[in-house]
Structures are given as structure tokens and as C-alpha cells.
Amino acid sequence: MNIQFKKGALDLCVLALTAREDRYGYELAVRISGKFDIAVGSVYPILNRLTQEGYFTTYLQESPGGPPRKYYRLSPEGRRRLFEMAEEWRTFTRAVNEWIEEGDLR
């Protein structure tokens, strides 16, 4: 079981954010860094890595009244990976939640 859940969760969240719609880098960087307490600039290397691993494809699209933005689209491989990671995550959190319940924490 993966106990480094924060880092494991990072990839999972990035993939999950793009599951429904393609997103541009700035949007992802700001949202992820806000939630995870990492530098905004460290999100781009993650996006790059996931792209190099084949989980994202990228394309440029004109933005209303500005230069084109780089969008990230989840590839079929990325979607498979997302489902896999989400399942692992559920199994993991279920186990942790059971222990917390048993500990009867208030």
C-alpha cells in the first residue's frame, strides 16, 4: 500500500482535474499548488513528467482576446492510469477510515 499519499495523491489529482475537460497549465498550477502547499512552479514539472509518460497530450488554443494557451488533455492511457490510481486510493482510504472509526476518534 502506498503510504506516501500526499505525493501519490498529487498525480491522481492532476489527472482527475483533467478527466472531464481539458485544462490549461496556469489553471492547473494555481489550483494544485493551493491545495497541496507546493510552489506553483513545481506543478509544471509534474505536468511535463505526466506528458512525457504519455498520460497527457497538449495542444495550443486561442484564448478570448489573448495569445494561445497550452491545454492538457487526458490520453486514453492517462484515463486508464487515473482509474487505476483512483481505485488504489479508495482501497487505501477505506482501510484508513476503518482504523479511524475503530479508534473512535472524536
Binding site: S33, A39, G41, N48
Partner: peptide
């Protein structure tokens, strides 16, 4: 400031690249 130290970011990018 919010982006973080460019030297650290460059190293992270280079490391990911070498790993891939």
C-alpha cells in the same frame, strides 16, 4: 515568489527528463 526558485525548478525538470 510563488513560482519558487528557478534553479530548483530547472533541476527538477532536468531530473525528470533524465529519468524518462
Amino acid at each position: 515568489r510563488e513560482l519558487g526558485d528557478p534553479r530548483v525548478i530547472a533541476r527538477e525538470l532536468r531530473m525528470n527528463y533524465q529519468f524518462e
